[in-house]
Amino acid sequence: MSGIEFILAGMLAAATPFLLAALGELVVERAGVLNLGLEGMMALGAAIGFIVVYEGGGHVAAFGAAGLAGVGLALVFGALAIGLQANQVAVGLAVGILGQGLSSLVGNSYESLTITGLPKLAFPVLSDLPVVGGLFTQDIIVWLSLIGTALIWAMFRYSRLGLILRAIGENPTAARAIGYRVTLLRLWAVVFGGAMAGFAGAYAATVYTPLWADGMIAGRGWIALALVVFGTWLTGRIFFGACLFGAVSLASLVAQTEGWPVPSQLLSSLPYIVAIVVLGIITSNKRLLKINGVASLGEPFGP
């Protein structure tokens, strides 16, 4: 298998943890809330998901439990950042540190254990194509994530809920004046984001690399946060951004197996370097941010 084929076949799976977490964060940020605790929520989801599969609960229960763990942390975040109107940056960091601590606490006795992932399902006909065939052979979660991406795109594009979410993020005072319950809706958005981060973690630890190692999320939550900015808060662009990062993380594997004369540590930091460079390119275009950005992002809102 050539390097290109390898990257095409694995790109979507590698992108899925980024994609799930970033889609959740997209909904949260569209509603005007900045949740920096993503990394911790993913870590806890990963640990819980792994434990459930390892103890024989199966993948469905694992994703359920991981989602609930994410929701639990999201509720702590929501209680402080939305209920008590505390500084969202500080609360996000606090919940993130708490989540990472909890993940290594509950995963302590499962360190370095492995489980079996999920089988790949081939899309008929298309998966037999040369070169790009691998793209159409994916596990069920990848397929579901693609459907989820389309649903979130459609929600923001066509539904009333999408409009309401955008309204409370753009101008919460006006949204309240016309009768929307801003606080409650923001809390629901945060809960959704927590569940998605939990799923993202569960995918990373039970499907993509079915093993548990402390710190295995390795900054993917932060890259997901950056992806929302790269995608300028638009679903389609976030999807392409996630694919780009999936491909970049695989490219370092390809380079290692092909024996390129590059230190492996440089390849491991490639996703972060790419993230910093792309972030700079996108944000330096202030017009782009002004058109697509969320006006009240990160600002506490109360009566």
């Binding site: 920096l36 950056a226 900015v229 972030l279």
Partner: peptide, 8 residues
């Protein structure tokens, strides 16, 4: 470049 220092 107007990029958020938290992420960088």
């Amino acid at each position: 470049l107007n990029a958020n220092e938290i992420l960088v």
